[in-house]
Design a protein around this nucleic acid. Sequence first.
RNA 1: GCCGGGAUCGCCUAGUGGUAGGGCGGCAGCCUGCUAAGCUGUUUGGCUAGAAAUGGCCUUCGCGAGUUCAAUUCUCGCUCCCGGCGCCA
Length: 433
Amino acid sequence: MLNARYVRERLDEIRASFAKRGSEYPFEELLEIDEEYKKLQAQVQELRSKRNKGSMEVSQLRKEKKEPDNAKIMELAGIKDQIDELEKKALNYTGRMESILWNMPNVLDKEVPAGSDESGNVTLKTVGEPVRKKLPGHEESLLKLGLLDMEQAAKVSGARFYYLKGDAALLEQALIRFTIDTLVKKGYVLVAPPLMLKKEYYRGVTALSEFEDALYRAVEASEAEGLEEREKVDDELFLISTSEHAIAAMHAGKLFSAKELPKRYIGISPCFRREAGSHGKDTKGIFRVHQFYKIEQFAVARQEDSWAIFSEFIANAEELFSLLKIPYRLVNICAGDIGSVAARKYDLEAYMPAQDKYREMVSCSNCTDWQAARLDIKYDEGGERKYAHTLNSTAIATTRAIVAIVENYLNEDGSIAVPEALQPYMNGKRRIG
RNA sequence: GCCGGGAUCGCCUAGUGGUAGGGCGGCAGCCUGCUAAGCUGUUUGGCUAGAAAUGGCCUUCGCGAGUUCAAUUCUCGCUCCCGGCGCCA
């Protein structure tokens, strides 16, 4: 599990990482507290040792059918009180240390560019020919064809919900099957995970800030009235914001042998996102919504294999967008934009003709041991136990891919061509509208 | 929802108010070669002594609390699994 030694052993890396992030973090405080804690722990252990020996003597006497004398028993009872007191003191230290450790962002990889916000991101390559179109955006196009209803969705569910209808809904299914078939052929194991996770596992896969901004909490109707009492309940459920989280949790507490790794998966699930911090951003259409389907790549790997898998995930994402014939670019996300969990993150951004901009379609992260340390995912290699590395990458997020397809395949007459790769999944249909 | 049984090392399994044992697998070593196995040790996490070889101590029987000098064992609460009954897409 996470402990101060984890920090002590990679102090230089951590220092460099925070310098790059340009943020303060109390990891020095952690080490100071740990020094104090260890002193306390030594005292406790010595007392325990004394108590254990005393208890053993009592046990020995009983075996010989003799009664231990009262003073001895009283002495041992006294030791118990001393231990209790010291342990109460230790709780202050362990509580603080745990909070520092659990909230500490991952150590950045050296390839992560410097930069305080998304303007620091570095484009690695650009593929395909962007074609600027003076045509309406996806929302207007789909509304006109009667394939999208935002208004009624807003009325019955709220803003950022939508009804996809007819060929648009079919296009979504086509994207899902196309992506699954492409990746299953490569040997990935398809996983349909639970859509809700307990808090104790959720906090192992993502940063704490996510709980407020991104996640929906599932409250049972019968419990909704007594919310204050529920605050104490630790087994409350959260709707997953990506199947990555549920598949990571699938490995929690497990020990693998090195030769079982890597394990490669594709997850399929709806994703639920509150988008609490994004008022006013992308309010038109279905680019940023509360709910969408996502096919996700996920892997558990040996430490030395994780960067090869990172490249593999990127290559898969590129292959999918190349097959869909959508122009894209690959971006290396900088220190200020990367978040807490990933050590390095590449985004694949598709060209959007109506906005004349590249927008995020895929996000590929090597989380190194950040999730594994919190979920206790290990492997045994030559008798040594190590934290595994976990990786995740979007394959296809349906709503965003639909936006990219509609805008790139829109014809002058308002109809939408179906990408060749998807036609077999659309009953051979070559055109929508 | 109700009743009963259960959770012990990576896997399987024994056990008891007083140092948690066995099998398989893994690791280290030894012996030996004729399709091949056998033997010995080791196998949770942490602290500590030492340059190292190697030691010492604590911790660990699903999770949390209680009783006790001492809890894996007894009591209470929780989570999960198995069986039966009820309800149900």
